[in-house]
């Protein structure tokens, strides 16, 4: 019997959602797709559609209004799935910590598997995070 789960690692499709970030990490995610970093060689596709995604890339400190949307998107991703929090503010709230409209990081709402630090996270870090996420995905 083929170990189908092995292939989870080979074809991670990514959904990206911004919960109030400053764009810094978002453009770095875009840069990851660019020829220099070329995430597609790992099989990554930016699907933009939760139903076909495996990895949930979230950026931003989670503002109150993005709360419900984040949950909605998260619930639409089929298991197994991995959440990658990209950027300092996504991990902990970062510079926005304790601001009145901010929930201090997405782990207050959904379970996070990989934390990618940096403000803004560089493409290398994001790719590291995704590779890490792949290992977790395999184990799930």
């Amino acid at each position: 019997m083929l170990h189908i789960k092995r292939f989870l690692k080979k074809s991670p499709w990514v959904l990206h959602y911004n919960t109030g970030s400053c764009n810094g990490c978002d453009i770095e995610i875009l840069a990851c797709l660019s020829p220099r970093y070329d995430l597609e060689r790992l099989g990554v596709l930016n699907t933009g559609n939760p139903k076909q995604a495996d990895i949930f890339l979230v950026t931003g400190p989670l503002t109150h209004r993005c709360h419900d949307r984040l949950l909605q998107l998260y619930s639409q991703i089929p298991d197994p799935k991995v959440v990658v929090a990209v950027g300092s503010c996504t991990c902990t709230g970062g510079v926005f910590k304790d601001m009145y409209n901010v929930n201090n990081g997405i782990d207050s709402l959904i379970p996070v598997d990989v934390y990618v630090p940096g403000c803004a996270s560089s493409p290398e870090l994001i790719m590291d995070g995704i590779v890490k996420a792949l290992e977790i995905l395999e184990g799930k």
Binding site: N18, G20, S21, G60, P61, T63, R69, M99, Y100, N101
Partner: peptide
């Protein structure tokens, strides 16, 4: 959606 309250 992105309002964080930076001015404050």
């Amino acid at each position: 959606f992105v309002h964080r309250g930076i001015e404050k």
